[in-house]
Design a protein around this nucleic acid. Structure first.
Lengths: 202, 202
DNA sequence: CATTCTAGATCGAACGCTCATTCTATGTTA
DNA sequence: TAACATAGAATGAGCGTTCGATCTAGAATG
């Protein structure tokens, strides 16, 4: 009755349900450690039913990465369309730091990166997601730098983007390896380090 | 004939052999994806024989983490005993960046952190390893800062250590998510960012 | 020196279990 | 009724682990 484009169809809802359950299970047991039986129980359906919506286990992984990418692209688009890009960026930096310091979020992200380091299908989609992320980040960074009177070549901008993203992603590892870290202090110093990076002379 | 303390006994050699093979397999297939059969084939021995040296699969993981910790502690001890700590540190920073940018090394490290985010036994040994690492790093950092005329309280030093380590560990994720990055450029900007962090006013 | 002894090293088959996936049957809805 | 949603048992492969048998090299013995 309802075409898929109008509202989330039953199928869409079931897919989201499976993705949410799978995310939980992957977080808790890892990609290979989480079983279809576990995921299906968490999602409240039979194991066989999952195969009506996903070809196999790997397809679930890919769908999670794709969903996260979509969310990230929406977010970056919002930042870039703000009237004051710099302020929007700095505000988002604070939010991003908190997000990276959340153990559950960080755990799943690390699980995905680890899987990308060995699974070519996951690697492909992760690389593409990262490329889009860097692209958007670089555009924003270039605008900010120009407004501050700096003229950088593309290579330099790209390198700065790498350093900035590395800081965020590094926090994800820190929150796992040192769960007792002083989040307030780290967040403050971190924002300072990023601002220094943004404003450094060419 | 030879007591264990004199030279690596046959048993020690076998253990190292298994650890090396397991490292390869974990890198390629992940902790749960790598089977004892695979590891034993890589190590050139029978599956059953592995159980003469390790209680179970998890013990192999723990032993790898313990081995890496030992290596790291040796390294940091060397830095701290150098006559010019700052120079030793900066030299080590360059080496460390290259190491983090190596995909094989980074892949295994990420695998270990991901496992630590869900396996309490692995988490325990990783947290302890990280604590020792931070301790040594903080001492070195404090000496450096004092020589530059800065007086920082412990909290500030700890936070700076977190930021510095986060940068290194972030690079491990970058090299997986963006394998085509310009390593020379990133390395240069990265060393600059770390030097700025080291020298920033209190 | 030759032989026997023995304890550890090593093997590989076997076990019980769980996995991802498939398939058939049943329920539901328009 | 036709098409889809869902269930859950069945399957065959592969898993971690165990275990008894065999091999080997050095110590002990004569």
């Amino acid at each position: 009755m309802c075409p898929d484009s109008v509202e989330p169809s039953r199928a869409e809802a079931r897919r989201a349900q499976i993705l949410a359950a799978a995310g939980d299970c992957f977080r808790k047991h890892g990609f290979h450690g989480a079983s279809i039986a576990q995921i299906s129980k968490t999602a409240g359906m039979s194991p066989g039913h999952i195969y009506h919506y996903f070809e196999n286990k790997e397809a679930i992984i890919s769908a999670i990465v794709a969903r996260d990418l979509e969310r990230f692209l929406t977010l970056t688009a919002e930042i870039r369309s703000a009237c004051n890009v710099r302020e929007a960026m700095l505000a988002r930096v604070a939010e991003g730091i908190d997000e990276c310091l959340d153990q559950a979020t960080a755990g799943l992200k690390l699980e995905i990166v680890a899987e990308a380091s060995r699974n070519p299908h996951v690697a492909e989609i992760v690389h593409e997601a990262d490329r889009l992320c860097r692209e958007s980040f670089a555009l924003t960074m270039r605008d900010m730098r120009r407004a501050s009177g700096h003229q950088d070549d593309d290579q330099t901008i790209d390198a700065m983007v790498e350093v900035a993203i590395a800081m965020f992603e590094g926090l994800q590892i820190r929150t796992i390896r040192n769960p007792g870290l002083d989040r307030g202090l780290v967040s403050r110093l971190f924002q300072g380090a990023l601002r220094d990076l943004f404003d450094q002379p060419a």
